[in-house]
Design a protein around this nucleic acid. Structure first.
Length: 563
RNA sequence: UGGGGAAUAGUGUAACGGUAGCACGAAGGAUUCUGAUUCCUUUAGUCUAGGUUCAAAUCCUAGUUCCCCAGCCA
């Protein structure tokens, strides 16, 4: 996590008067002031290992780890692995990798809900003994019928009043594997008439013969989320159990189990999950995009998985900055995708070395230069940071410029190359437009110019270029939003979110011409190609001497907007 | 329809009975060998209707809109 800049003591207001504190910080401040939890702050991130982490998880990770850091507390990583049917070691590994990359540190506190299966079982027995849990023989459908609806109360089934002895016996036999999957459950005896459906005798254990990635076939019964989460928090000494809004209706249950068991009782706090425009975030949809090959995989740079973002060229710093900026509240909100782009631009603008790359080349011949001429130009690696040094860029008689930097019929405000005009070649000098060569279709295929090396001469426009003889060819991938609609879920009658896929979300350029220094770049390096954006050396498809560049983000372009 | 939550500039988020602020965006300008960056200026808001109060985004009443819940998923 980023370190908080230490404010000088004289201008730091008292703890309880600091402005701009989010509601969770305010809650914690109050807890601390009241001496709750012995002044401790202990948070956790509890993913289920059933998929890859995305930007929404990053919000939760930054929040939890950030709070622990801010209050000098602790942060745990705990896998909520209570449903072996969906969980895999692959996800356990990838999740840890992604969290580490993001920069959150759980130190030596890596836990699994499955670490606590024995304890959980004991607690279940304890609740049976206390007459607060019972074995129910209803199948799923019958249980649904008994549960009632939003407006009608549920009905108790005949198993609700079983004796403690019978429940103990049955539960032991459930564990021993005497019953088929789905034939019995252990339920908490709470209130079948509660207006909160979660309190209508929720399932604590179900019979499920599935191989668990950690406990193997030791168990054939598995605890439910509700019977697991609070107790795990409790066992780990968590003080503030932060989750998303959809668990609000589960909080009474969280509290009920902690109270019934008489164990350390952490406080559940809910916040609004992250929503972003032009994308989808649910695991189901992400999975569908991957399995149906709408994207190349979990790390497709158009996906907002942490792996996708990383491969796109997003830095962990930028994602943390983004999470900081969006804030935390209970209010439903949709963040504009542009905020993410701003965050990465901010980071890369400060740190990425500059280079020149022509995405869509147009040949320009500098007619007053001999064919074998080679001028060495000194180019700054970062105009605002001289420390980053300079590099040499060769200029020759034939160069490439960007097609969009030449216009035959240019508007008055067009500051680039046009007939009768002059423009600066970045770091090299001025060129003046001469003859245009056209093909049969009347398109300009080549422009002849004269070169003036005067570096002090003023002209309005500056364009990037590469020497044709020295240029390296590289594959460059340009990305746009994966979805064309701001809200992909908004579809015509009977449509699906897939109807909103943006057909132009990926454009592969195979004829880009890059300055020679870009021939030998490190996999995973970031560059700003001046005037065209930030690019990342794709770590998967790049070969030594044959880099593949992914465009992380464009530069802001007020000219494009003006047009 | 029952219950649980949430409504503040375009977006996001503060203000917790006493000056509605911040960030991003947008618009304009300055600087500039990136139409980038940087800098300056401007813009624009308390869901509605009542009420309490010297004073209401904040408290009260009624309404409106949005989100979540009827898995042996988490």
């Amino acid at each position: 996590m980023p370190s908080t800049p230490s404010a000088s003591s004289h201008d730091t207001p008292p703890e309880n008067q600091r402005p701009g504190r989010n509601f969770i910080q305010q809650l914690i401040d109050a807890d601390l002031a009241a001496g709750r939890y012995g002044g401790r702050v202990h948070t956790r991130f509890p993913p289920e290992p059933n998929g890859y982490l995305h930007i929404g998880h990053a919000k939760s990770i930054c929040l939890n780890a950030g709070l622990a850091r801010e209050y000098g507390g602790r942060f745990n990583l705990r896998f909520d692995d209570t449903n072996p049917a969906k969980e895999e070691q692959e996800y356990v590994d990838s999740i840890q990798e992604d969290i580490r990359w993001l920069g959150a540190d759980w130190e030596d506190r890596l836990f699994f809900a499955s670490d606590y299966f024995d304890q959980l079982y004991e607690w279940a027995v304890q609740l049976i003994q206390a007459g607060r849990a019972y074995v129910c023989d209803l199948d799923a459908e019958a249980m649904r019928e008994h549960r009632g609806t939003l407006t009608e109360p549920g009905r108790a089934c005949c198993y609700r009043e079983r004796s403690v002895e019978e429940n103990l016996d049955l539960f032991a036999r459930m564990k021993a594997g005497e019953f088929a999957d789905g034939t019995r459950t252990l339920r908490a005896k709470i209130d079948m008439a509660s207006p909160n459906l979660n309190l209508r005798d929720p399932v604590m254990y179900r019979i499920k013969r599935a191989h668990h990635h950690r406990t193997g076939d030791t168990w054939c019964i598995y605890p439910s989320y509700d019977f697991t989460h609070g107790q795990c928090d409790s066992l780990e000494g968590i003080t503030h159990s932060i989750c998303t809004l959809e668990f609000e209706n589960h909080r009474p249950l969280y509290d009920w189990f902690c109270d019934a068991l008489g164990i350390h009782h952490p406080q559940q706090i809910e916040f609004a999950r992250l929503n972003l425009s032009y994308t989808v975030m649910s695991k189901r949809k992400l999975l569908q995009l991957v399995t149906e090959n709408h994207v190349s995989g979990w790390d497709d740079p158009r996906l907002l998985t942490l792996r996708g973002l990383r491969r796109r060229g997003y830095t962990a710093t930028s994602i943390r900055a983004f999470c900081e900026r969006i804030g935390v509240a209970k209010q439903y909100s949709v963040i504009d995708m542009a905020w993410l782009e701003d965050a990465i631009r901010e980071d890369l603008n400060a740190h990425a070395p500059r280079a020149m790359g022509v995405l869509r080349p147009l040949k320009v011949v500098l007619t007053n230069l001999p064919a074998d001429a080679e001028r060495i130009c000194q180019a700054a690696n970062h105009p605002q940071q001289p420390d980053m040094g300079t590099r040499e860029v060769p200029l020759t008689r034939e160069i490439y410029i960007e097609q969009s930097d030449f216009l035959e019929d240019a508007p008055k405000k067009f500051f680039r190359l046009k007939p009768g005009g002059a423009v600066r070649l970045r770091s090299a000098g001025i060129i003046e437009c001469g003859e245009m060569i056209k093909n049969a279709a009347g398109e300009v295929t080549e422009v002849h110019c004269t070169f003036d090396p005067d570096l002090t001469r003023k002209v309005k426009g500056t364009i990037h270029w590469v020497s044709a003889r020295h240029a390296i060819s590289a594959e460059v991938r340009l990305y746009d939003h994966l979805f064309a609609a701001e809200n992909p879920d908004q579809t015509a009658e009977g449509g699906t979110f897939l109807d909103n896929l943006n057909p132009h979300s990926l454009e592969v350029l195979t004829t880009a011409k890059l300055e020679p220094s870009l021939g030998q770049v490190a996999s995973g390096a970031h560059y700003q190609f001046e005037r065209t954006g930030y690019f990342y050396v794709d770590p998967v498809d790049s070969q030594p001497g044959q880099p593949v560049f992914n465009r992380t983000a464009t530069l802001r372009d007020s000219w494009a907007k003006a047009k």
